[in-house]
């Protein structure tokens, strides 16, 4: 069963009079339980693609099916609900709330979940999640009192608090040293293997990509799998590495 299906997605930014095409007619399928690395040069459109996949942005054209539902044309509120229930985000810069404890950061998404859990249940889930990522003794630490790796683990715990089927991680190791990066990647692998969570990681690091079962290369708004060019108009590309 396909978890994600992109059909001819393109994204064009309008900068005044100039149209800047960033994604060009991308089609992509991701099965449930896959661990996918998304690679490409800077400015190739990885983050743009991730934003569309994460329902944060709408494509200019094309269809996006997530769990058999078209989500590119639904209302903002419905997209918010999709993000809350079906998607977990892990960011390069962690994006934890400052001066807020790890536990509160982790349970924050639950306050936007339609079904209301009691405070006690939320805290219980948050504690379980943090303990699972080895932060059982850091519940009441604020982000400023945690190391980078610990902060990213809090962020992963937050992404998983609602048991989403898929996690999008945009350069999750970009701000971490190699040792901690390895840690975080092992964590993703374990989640993927043991819990069957689909994970899509954007990365520049070929070592990171090695962990993935599948690597998608994106080049100037087109998907290139290894040397094989998926996109229909890939032939037209080649000189557009520099963005205007």
């Amino acid at each position: 069963m396909k978890l994600i299906e992109l059909k001819n997605i393109s994204k064009t930014y309008q900068m005044g009079d100039i149209a800047v095409p960033v994604l060009k007619d991308i089609s992509l399928e991701v099965e449930r339980g896959e661990l996918v690395a998304l690679m490409g040069a800077s400015g190739s459109g990885k983050s743009t693609l991730m934003n569309i996949l994460g329902c944060l942005d709408r494509p200019s054209s094309g269809e996006y099916w997530l769990e058999e539902t078209e989500v590119s044309n639904i209302s903002n509120d419905a997209r918010a609900a999709v993000r809350n229930r079906k998607i977990g985000f892990v960011f390069q810069s962690f994006n934890l709330l400052p001066r807020t404890t790890a536990l509160e950061n982790v349970i924050m998404p639950l306050s936007y979940t339609a079904e209301h859990l009691s405070d006690a249940e939320r805290l219980k889930r948050g504690r379980e999640m943090l303990t699972r990522f080895g932060l059982g003794d850091r519940f009441h630490h604020e982000p400023s009192k945690l190391s980078g790796g610990q902060q990213q683990r809090v962020a992963i715990a937050r992404a998983l608090i609602n048991n989403p089927p898929v996690i999008f991680a945009d350069e999750p190791t970009g701000n971490l040293d190699s040792h901690t990066s390895e840690d975080v990647l092992q964590m993703f692998k374990k989640l993927n293997r043991d819990d069957g969570i689909t994970i899509i990681i954007v990365t520049h690091d070929p070592d990171v990509a090695e962990h993935a079962r599948r690597v998608i290369h994106i080049h100037d708004g087109n998907i290139v799998d290894g040397l094989f060019v998926h996109s229909a108009n890939a032939a037209a590309s080649g000189n557009g590495k520099e963005k205007s």
Binding site: G54, A80, M108, T113
Partner: peptide, 16 residues
């Protein structure tokens, strides 16, 4: 602003 963006990313609607 970042907090608002984050809250929206994890499912806060505009009205929240």
């Amino acid at each position: 602003t970042r907090e608002i963006g984050l809250r929206m990313a994890v499912g806060a609607r505009a009205r929240d």
